[in-house]
Amino acid sequence: MFEARLGQATILKKILDAIKDLLNEGTFDCSDSGIQLQAMDNSHVSLVSLTLRSDGFDKFRCDRNLSMGMNLGSMAKILKCANNEDNVTIKAQDNADTVTIMFESANQEKVSDYGMKLMNLDQEHLGIPETDYSCVVRMPAMEFARICRDLAQFSESVVICCTKEGVKFSASGDVGTANIKLAQTGNVDKEEEAVIIEMQEPVTLTFACRYLNAFTKATPLSTQVQLSMCADVPLVVEYRINELGHIRYYLAPKIED
């Protein structure tokens, strides 16, 4: 028996919004410790890794490890039927071929349940090596989304250059060139507005705007985003989900031939 309950459907809606543009389907691996999903996009350029800890749920029961392959488009349709404040419960029997998603209004007067067929997805799991990143940037998630959106107008690629002075995002194309520099915040009044850079070594990497923009669909989940970079390895874009877990996107760099 698997049962996981969240106080507000809005969190699950936001999580799905954050992954459904990159992934058509995904396997939710459920265990005592929580729910995990790892999947590459169709082009195998990016990897999504979602972790939801069991202690972040209002109720969590997982008697036996369970892998639930789900069509994320179908799941999105079901979640559209929930009000943001509804309680949401995801339930499945051991070895079941369906999952039940149940919504309850705050006053318990409306209860709806939706059944969805599970899929047997033959997804390969990748081992993500421990990496000592040369630069780790924390910045407001909205600012990062804005920069990615703005630079996508100029080029398919964005160059991220991080030094101890700050982080620079650049793009150039037919229209011209664009450079956006963010300095590390001097006095941090509000932590959520801070730009914090931890640098071991300066790093310059090139990434596809299209994917960065897809990652920013996670912006409603977190006030801050963390970018971890190291020469010649994938960028990690991490959004923490308050008291529940995190979503990490890995993006393979573009390299000079």
Binding site: M40, S43, H44, V45, S46, L47, E124, H125, L126, G127, I128, P129, S157, T206, A208, V233, P234, Y250, A252, P253, K254, I255, E256, D257
Partner: peptide, 14 residues
């Protein structure tokens, strides 16, 4: 020339 790499060239299957 800039070439897009894939995740599979950095992370191994387990």
């Amino acid at each position: 020339n800039v070439r897009q790499t894939t995740i599979g060239s950095y992370f191994n299957k387990i």
